[in-house]
Design a protein around this nucleic acid. Structure first.
Lengths: 216, 216
DNA sequence: CGCGGTTTACTGCACTCTGCAGTATAGGGT
DNA sequence: ACCCTATACTGCAGAGTGCAGTAAACCGCG
């Protein structure tokens, strides 16, 4: 056990195991639900993390069976609990965003205005779907306590952030689509709409804030 | 040239080369500036992408020299331009967020209230620094036209999003820190502050919206 | 009661990407 | 003459992704 620092996926796994034991499959499933919007990981990687945690002695395994089929149950060790608690007191890395749609916005002078409109519409729709998911999740926690009732206060903090985040994406996409309506194409606004560009860049952006859809 | 799809970093590179030729070092430098907040990539990967783009025939290279030291200059090919334009018309992947701080929030019942407070404070401070960077960048574009004057209208759209995004993180961190003030520790609010939790989860969250620092 | 679709429970493989270290030249200040 | 910083990259180990594949258990339906 060469004492390497676990990945964030590793700490998430330890966090789940802090409450109760889970099978590898269940852990992989849990990390694919809502948490994936906060810390994305591939199904494949979630299994790989488990063997590394075991190599480090942070989790223990035992086998269970349903007929012929084996199943590995994981539980946290005292060292695992300690590693998790120690981690919580170390400095955080800043959040990072991967926004392909915004990359397309920046490069959209190489495509058509309709391409850009479609990108904005897709982004808006994806954000709305996710917003709805978290809204349903909030209702579910409020009614039933959720899958982790002992953490409902923490899920409430995270849920509030996520809904606000998607609201912001939706509001931005609507605002951006509105700006496009005055553009003849994707390249000339740089030279012909300078006043508008300056207004977009003005600190405060009261215009946008006021124009935001109040139903959001 | 086995005709694999370029990565987003690849398309960003093509996007830079669509305007003018750049050296490998300059490209790596550009992709590390503000764009990294939209599409993160390691320095190392930006060089690797270049050789793949050349293998695909999407860019051409030539050598220049300063004394003994070589430098590779990249330029886009017609196939590269075509690939970039075609990409802009394909479906977008949804944005994805990697938020270590929020993972810590979810698992903070395994640590102290002070750990959680520190995490929130650090997150707030990181967001404020980034917000300021984009605000300065907006002023820079507004005054000088920026490094890519022909794309100033597109940078304005992206900049507006980024500032709003960091504002949201800041407002959330402030709100969350305020919630913590009523908590005796990181675990009991789940059982003793149920009304407060329900209010946090209530759709609308008017309380939070109204409590937001108006100076943001 | 047998059949097919879904769920459970993973593993293998090729490839990409990251993080860190390392190498070496050029330019500018003291 | 010396040192620091900027330029201009390359190598390598390990982590993570995406896709495919395997195989048993469960469940409804005719």
């Amino acid at each position: 056990m060469p004492d390497r620092e676990p990945s964030i996926t590793g700490y998430l796994t330890l966090g789940l195991l802090a409450g109760r034991d889970w099978s590898a499959y269940q852990l992989a499933e849990q990390l694919g639900r809502g948490v994936a919007e906060l810390w994305p990981s591939a199904d494949r990687g979630r299994y790989a993390v488990l063997t590394r945690l075991r190599d480090e002695g942070l989790v223990d395994t035992r086998q269970e069976h349903t007929g012929k089929r084996a199943r590995t149950i994981y539980s946290i060790t005292p060292e695992g609990r300690e590693a998790l608690t120690r981690w919580l007191s170390t400095p955080v890395r800043p959040p990072s965003l991967e926004f392909e749609g915004m990359v397309r916005v920046l490069l959209s002078d190489q495509g058509s205005l309709d391409d850009l409109r479609r990108t904005l519409a897709q982004t808006r729709e994806q954000a709305r779907a996710n917003r709805d998911m978290f809204a349903r999740y909030a209702a579910f926690i409020s009614e039933t306590g959720g899958t982790f009732p002992e953490r409902r206060h923490l899920f409430a903090l995270a849920n509030t952030f996520m809904i606000g985040h998607y609201d912001h994406v939706i509001a931005w996409a609507d605002w951006a689509a509105q700006q496009l309506d005055t553009w003849p194409d994707t390249v000339t606004p740089a030279t012909t709409h300078q006043a508008q560009v300056r207004e977009m860049l003005a600190p405060g952006r009261e215009a946008w804030q006021a124009n935001g859809d109040p139903s959001l």
